[in-house]
Nucleic acid binder design. Structure first.
Lengths: 373, 373
DNA sequence: TATATCAGTGAATCTGGGT
DNA sequence: AACCCAGATTCACTGATAT
């Protein structure tokens, strides 16, 4: 069993007793109260925001407000929504692991209140991400801008908290450019959109699987436990299963639960080779520069230069470099010579190979290829 | 005198006594207190973002990032920032006409708190608009998504309030398609970026004129009075003047006021490059290979080959390809396998479709056809 | 003179493990 | 908790300098 596998296995011991890959049919706060502290790796939440739509007024819990008998106004409505939001966020924070993150999606109706509550709950916002819809519903009355995006908030458990971000995988996914905070993805339609027997859409705000795909690929690792407290028709569960993550869904409506169960059962898990993603150099086995000298990949006395031959240095037997009376590690000397705060010596220093300057990092690659099984 | 002209003339009677087309050098709340109730047609506010930056930041090449470290952006706590925000918003609401609107721009650091305060002050949000930056600063350390957008909130004085929205002008500006809530515009640089005598930027957060152009064109009429309580170097004033709107600027820093005065006095007719930017704002849709994987056009685990089936590779979850122990993007792996310096993966790699090998570029075409309006 | 290369920079909450 | 140090990390665009 390799080292990484061991770490994962140990992490999964903590999963014993959790209702993994199941849907809890319950109020989201009540259901979260049944989960232990710090047991979840990531939360994806798509909370309701049906405040004042179509002349009808609904409470955040979905119950109908009778305007005749209920004493309400805008303030009451916002205050009630805030109480609801702060309630479920407090539970979310309790069950989230220290190195976990939370995602919340919303529109201008609710996202500002949610974002404020996220910050007030002690979460630390990492990014806001806009889902730019390729094909949004037009504004029929021509009274405003076409509402063509939704906003996601991504937050860690605190300013100093660790978190998972698969930087390299995101960069690969985006054609070798850093993934940005604006994601252009189509809305959920066509065969992906779940329908009831009567042909009507099964859920009013079903999210596209591509959105969850990117969220899960960016911020979780295989085997991680993802909780969705507003599970709906189970997009989070379907994508989690496909990507080899575990899920816990919470959904109050029986009809949605049934649709979600069927849908997730049909989702095909990818096999492990397809799940492998590009890794950052950070996780590659480390090779000290001195090792290359010891093993003869580079001889003591060899001359290194930067790419433009502005500086040169001599390799010493202990793996340090020397320029004049300056000495130090490949990183330290590179930084000192450039007057920079830091320097990656592996890419800064070059050696001549077949009449060509090559970064010493290529020697490290050669070494790794020759010695790795 | 026609009816419309009369309305305008009457409206302009109300402007008598206002400090039109002037900059008030004062604290924004104090200055607003000197203005009468309901005298302003539109407010554009670019308040401090409360960035809360840590230490110094250096680019991978060792150069230093010139961050926003000005005192005006420092607040001790969220509570202090909220007090500040609610204070100026209350005055803003008082001086705004019943049929006026307010715009506020911010980033994830502050926009959620601002949006909540906007709603609590009784404003009615009409849209949130995302300014998608064509050329944002990258995330140098690879720790998060590139922060590539800012958010604008547009709100009326209440749910039933009338307001100005020049639907037709926006549609024309957007190539006869409804203007959407996502605006792709470059950041402010080049000759438009104001510099001090020392060549250093005059203001750390100068907004592009193209942004204000769209805001003013969308939500004001000629002759309207636009107030900017955080005037800075006066982008709002310059664009207002060019578009035949009146402005009132409020700015506390003497240095900014001086720069703004000079700039507005220069009052060039709308810069041609700005107009070009406005009209060519629709960027060509880019489709990364990974997007086809996310959206299900190609499943992870699928096998790709070249046209003559000499090589094959497996598609992985992050859009990378794998052949044996070689991995990389469609372009990189294609190049490596052929021993070529570069390769167009879109035409090199093929997938089988109805028993026939087709270049994956055809999938990209299919995707574009299905998702572009 | 035209082209290629280099240098600079923009609202940024920007490392992590060991001692 | 503070310090040390290995070493990983950037995109689009502008304007100046070099060829």
């Amino acid at each position: 069993m390799g080292a990484i596998t061991k770490v994962r296995a140990r992490a999964q011991d903590a999963q014993v007793g959790l209702p993994l890959d199941r849907i809890l049919m319950d109020d989201c706060i009540d259901a979260m109260k049944g989960l232990p502290d710090k047991c979840i790796d990531m939360i994806f939440a798509d909370p309701p925001y049906n405040l004042q739509l179509g002349g009808e007024l609904f409470r955040p819990d979905g119950s109908h407000v009778d305007a005749v008998t209920d004493d309400w106004d805008k303030f009451d409505t916002f205050a009630a929504y805030d109480r609801f939001t702060r309630g479920w966020l407090a539970e979310a924070r309790r069950i989230l692991k220290d190195d976990g993150t939370i995602w919340v999606i919303g529109s201008y109706h609710n996202i500002f209140r949610v974002g404020t509550a996220v910050q007030d709950a002690g979460f630390w916002i990492l990014n806001d991400v806009v889902w730019v819809k390729a094909n949004p519903m037009p504004n029929f009355k021509g009274t405003r801008f076409t509402n063509a995006h939704e906003t996601l908030i991504w937050a860690s458990t605190g300013e100093k908290a660790k978190y998972t971000f698969n930087y390299r995988a995101m960069k690969t996914l985006n054609d070798e450019l850093q993934m940005r905070s604006d994601w252009a993805l189509p809305i959920c339609g066509g065969p992906e959109r779940l329908k009831n027997a009567d042909g009507h859409k099964a859920h009013p705000t079903q999210k596209p699987e591509a959105l969850l795909y990117r969220v899960l690929l960016a911020a979780t690792r295989p085997g991680d436990v993802v909780l969705d407290p507003f599970f709906g028709t189970g997009t989070t569960g379907a994508v989690a299963r496909r990507l080899g993550r575990r899920f816990i869904g919470i959904e109050r409506e029986h009809a949605y639960v049934e649709v979600a169960k069927e849908r997730i059962a049909a989702a095909l898990p990818l096999d492990e080779s397809a799940l492998t993603i590009m890794q950052s150099a950070k996780s590659a086995p480390k090779v000290a520069f001195g090792l290359l000298v010891e093993t003869g990949y580079l001889a003591p006395g060899a001359v290194l230069t930067d790419a433009k031959r502005r500086w040169s240095a001599i390799v010493r037997a202990d793996g340090s470099l020397q320029t004049g009376d300056q000495t130090g590690s490949i990183h330290k000397l590179g930084a000192v010579l450039q007057g920079a705060p830091s320097c990656n010596g592996w890419t800064f220093w070059h050696h001549e190979e077949a009449g060509e300057l090559k970064p010493i990092d290529s020697l490290r690659q050669t070494y790794l290829l020759a010695t790795q099984p």
